[in-house]
Design a protein around this nucleic acid. Structure first.
Lengths: 256, 256
DNA sequence: ACAAGTATGAACAGAAATGAACTGAATGTC
DNA sequence: GACATTCAGTTCATTTCTGTTCATACTTGT
């Protein structure tokens, strides 16, 4: 029994029973619980099942569900703080753009309950969060769904974003250095991000404190061109000073 | 009973009864009231139900989700049979269009495992089903997410569909009458359906036996214009005869 | 055959879930 | 409007689960 067939069998067992415990799977497959956990983690990252404490279940993907992504989310507290600050900035906006990062997903969650708002987003989880909000229209620009993460990319997305306009855009960054350069990691789609930035009157970069002060692979913009950075209060104050001396607006969101 | 399935069960119980008390849930689930409270809070934060004093009621979002799941689960066997026949017709197609009906969602499920395929769909659940298939590219035409059902509509969707082409399209119908007229119920988006039909080389209407022999509110097409109808073996043979005498191709899919 | 990389399992430390007890808030009753 | 009752939410202890780390076995490519 190799890894691949074992994982296939786990998928089958979970699919047929709807739910399996780690221990149960370990006994049935004749491997240790540790191995089962690693398998479940891998399958969960692929979105093939939903990890639970003690086991795994089948997601209700008959509906448009991306809730399982929330659990993968790191630094939830910081992102929620940033999101609260972000929606405050957008309090009178009637159109908001959100990219496909996990930080902007937190923004989407904070937008719930708003009315008279159109949200343009490439993020399918954000769309799922907002689809049933009575006061919010969700507009997807279309495009290919990236296999690595549930958001839209490609020339169709770019072309459509050129035709759309929003009052404010929130873009997630994988890294921000002390010169105000904003980075993303491939295979992230910097082209789509740039189209979003070009189509919004005000552009804020959202990045929690773990993203600050280091570069990443692909530079896609400069904070001096945009409205500023929103980060959380666990960040380094010296870093914030440096950016502010460059004339960059920095908003430090407090925790609850 | 782990957390995930317990919360799923709570959702079901609240959905079926409209309202549940904390104490009632605690007894039925065999957990403490404290655990129920924590579950309810989590579900409430996700917008899945509305917390009340002493219990919880159904929120708007949950209402939509369960209404959609009901539709998905209706005549599941027939829809699966139709879907199997559909993917056989599309066995050498490299591009497939799927609309947002529950029958075409079954087609999406049957497409899993295929490779070298691009699926163009307005259905967000279908997209969710296929997003992790390594051999399948999922292309969304964009547009507004309808509030009543999770699919895309609006002029953006229509414009983009005009630019796209597929070898074969499967469109769900709410009704097919004995003259070959194909109907949809408002607020279904017949404009998007027509754009899909116009952009595909072969167009099949998929409709289980409960949809046959009756009209619905909005006529959006005629089977004689298209490649034919796929239905299931529980249909009325006389009805099939009538359509065939009009020169319409009818495929009757057998159950497993 | 050898070496590099991968998979596996054991042990342990940290995290999460749960329930009990307690305090504070909301609702209903008189 | 005051009181009683019920409910909610915090805190803490207990249990269970998770994931890191490390050592070993296995697989794969050269």
């Amino acid at each position: 029994m190799n890894q691949e067939s074992r994982r296939a069998l786990i998928r089958k067992l979970v699919a047929s029973r709807g739910e399996c415990s780690v221990e149960q799977l370990a006994v049935e497959l004749g491997v240790s619980g540790m191995t089962v956990r690693r398998d479940l983690q891998a399958l969960c990252e692929d979105g093939r099942l939903i990890r639970t404490h003690g086991g795994a279940t089948l997601g209700e993907r008959a509906t448009f569900e991306f809730a399982f992504l929330d659990r993968v989310n790191k630094n939830q507290e910081a992102k929620t703080a940033i999101a609260r600050a972000a929606v405050r900035l957008a309090s009178d906006a009637r159109s908001v753009m959100l990219d496909g990062s996990t930080t902007t997903l937190a923004v989407a969650r904070q937008l719930r309950g708003r009315s008279g708002l159109t949200v343009i987003t490439t993020s399918l989880p954000a769309a799922a969060q907002l689809q049933h909000e009575p006061g919010i229209d969700v507009l997807l620009p279309g495009g290919y769904i990236r296999s690595a993460s549930p958001d839209l990319t490609g020339s169709l997305a770019e072309t459509n974003l050129e035709l759309l306009r929003a009052e404010i855009a929130f873009l997630g960054a994988d890294a921000v250095d002390d010169r105000g350069n904003v980075f993303t990691n491939p295979p992230d789609n910097s082209a789509v991000l740039l189209k979003m930035a070009a189509s919004a009157q005000r552009v804020y970069v959202v990045a929690d404190h773990t993203k600050l002060g280091k570069p990443a692979l692909r530079r896609f913009g400069q904070l001096t061109q945009w409205a500023g950075l929103i980060t959380d209060e666990a960040c380094d104050p010296d870093f914030v000073d440096q950016l502010q001396q460059l004339g960059i607006g920095v908003i430090v969101a407090p925790f609850e």
